[in-house]
Design a protein around this nucleic acid. Structure first.
Lengths: 150, 150
DNA sequence: TATTGTTATACTCTATAACTATA
DNA sequence: TATAGTTATAGAGTATAACAATA
């Protein structure tokens, strides 16, 4: 008597997890030459905004909590890619800014990430890649949070 | 000067991770009434095969290592859903089988998982859901591993 | 010697609580 | 009192090494 369910490798949970894990693996490899990981790259990108951000603001935009942000910034600061300075307006706040090297690293690593995304999605074809991104966007956000697009 | 990269919420890594996390969250909620998690359900499903499996064989089919399998089976055995017995042919091996209650639980939890998958993918429509599954299947397996379908 | 199950250990990620300095 | 940054701690999850029984 065979089980009625599909093979394990077809289950949605398995597929989502392994698609993510495989991307994470390739992402680590693609960013390795730049000495940062995906999370650090996201922080650098956030900090490249038009106006300077505090640690808490940066954390809020990335959906990480402030204690994690401390650790990430410690690492990035040790690498010389960001600099903290006390806000003169509110001395509780740290303003975090990219160093020149941080800006340079961001630009190069972003190119590598972009190239990786293209390579990773290549097997799907152009229309398939667009369709996947659209679907993931719909699924990644809980229905309650979903803001109707303008 | 605005950054050239897309918003963080559009990055492939972010989308894959959060789509997975959201499914994992809903999956936990959907299975909660049955007293098992997704991993335990997968083990039960594997053990419902036509012929009995050893711990190592079960671990191999799920891609978990044998030390993790020990812990999962400890839990499932404590819940009365599986039973271990020494193989009489090779006394190093544990044959693991579903109990009657395990079989019953598997059936009910599988229905809940199936229902969850449908509900989770509903926003995509029927064709969108099929297309996503197809894409994830292509991405979840590394190109080298990809076996051409018969 | 190699394999199966087991235990112990370590390492990463993340979440929580508590401390400090400032407001 | 509340907020921003920090530190310490604990909890999942996973990987590695070593051990006992058996082959």
């Amino acid at each position: 008597m065979e089980q009625s369910s599909e093979p394990l490798g077809e289950r949605l949970g398995y597929l989502l997890k392994h698609a993510y894990l495989r991307f994470a693996e390739e992402s680590a490899a693609a960013l390795e030459p730049y000495g940062i990981d995906g999370r650090e790259l996201a922080v650098l990108a956030v900090l490249s905004a038009a106006y300077p951000l505090s640690q808490l603001e940066a954390a809020g935009r990335l959906g990480v909590d402030r204690t994690s942000m401390v650790a990430i910034l410690d690492t990035l600061e040790a690498k010389g890619l960001v600099a903290r300075r006390r806000s003169s307006e509110d001395r509780r706040k740290n303003i975090v800014e990219l160093t020149d090297e941080g800006r340079d690293r961001l630009e190069k690593a972003e190119r590598a990430r972009d190239e990786l995304e293209r390579r990773f999605l290549a097997p799907l074809g152009e229309e398939g890649a667009r369709s996947l991104t659209r679907a993931l966007r719909a699924l990644a956000t809980a229905p309650e949070d979903a803001a109707p697009e303008a």
